[in-house]
């Protein structure tokens, strides 16, 4: 199976000298195409830092990050926005929708950034909002949507550009158990349908059964890495 993500000795240190904090120790991780991978662990374990390195919003202090065979960590800073736009869809903990835009315009935003004509962008956004069950809420602004609806808009925004990688950071954190599970189920379902590789950071163990692989971090290093029953194989170590 081809790989979607490879982290090779990737580490991240914030600050310098005496105030330096190593958030992620040198880490090796390979995620095959299409595998539903959860990064889990307590707060401060380094899982969001690892997600940020994979999402090209941070550069590793040392080591490499390779996405779909492209050593993205070695690309120039100015190339990263285009890489993010082409390769990665993000779902953030706080949904991070643009308050002044309607649900439709929020979802159309990544397409507009790629230069897609407005009409086409809005048509594709409407189609995806319909797919996440918000076909009747196109004109609503984020303030008029429930937490679960906002997160579904965020999922639609992440996937509208058909990126091969979906990165979600604590997508259930601000939702109740039922809504949280529904949101992650939706992400998993759409990822399978759209052949996207989802990587989900969570510490919500009520949804671990939706993962095919669970990578556990503690103190900036991977301490456990296992496949789950959902992977269709025996439960055990992934490395």
């Amino acid at each position: 199976m081809a790989n979607a993500v490879q982290a090779i000795g990737a580490s991240k240190t914030y600050g310098e000298g005496r105030i330096a904090v190593q958030a992620l120790k040198p880490t090796d991780l390979t995620i095959p195409l299409g595998q539903i991978c959860f990064l889990v662990g307590p707060s401060g374990s380094g899982k969001t830092t690892l997600l940020s390195l994979i999402g090209c919003v941070l550069r590793p202090t040392a080591g490499r990050v390779v996405l779909f065979g492209d050593a993205v960590s070695e690309r120039r800073e100015r190339d990263l926005p285009d890489l993010r736009l082409a390769l990665v869809g993000f779902v953030f903990q706080g949904h991070n929708l643009i308050a002044s835009l309607s649900a439709l315009d929020n979802v159309a935003l990544p397409l507009r950034l790629t230069g897609t004509p407005s009409l086409e962008a809005r048509q594709r956004a409407a189609h995806l909002l319909d797919a996440v069950g918000l076909g009747k809420e196109l004109a609503r602004k984020p303030a008029a949507l429930s937490g679960g609806q906002k997160q579904r808009v965020a999922i639609a925004r992440a996937l509208v550009g058909t990126p091969p990688l979906l990165l979600a950071d604590e997508p259930t954190a601000s939702l109740d158990a039922a809504a949280g599970r529904h949101v992650v189920e939706l992400m998993v379902e759409l990822s399978r349908k759209m052949r996207v590789t989802p990587i989900i950071v969570t510490h919500d163990n009520r949804i671990f059964d939706l993962a095919e692989r669970i990578v556990q971090l503690e103190d900036g290093r991977i301490v456990a890495d296992s496949l789950t029953a959902a992977a269709g194989g025996a439960v055990g170590s992934a490395t």
Partner: peptide, 11 residues
């Protein structure tokens, strides 16, 4: 919001 735009690929 500006950070979000940058994260999703706005130059």
């Amino acid at each position: 919001e500006f950070g979000t735009l940058k994260a999703i690929g706005a130059r």
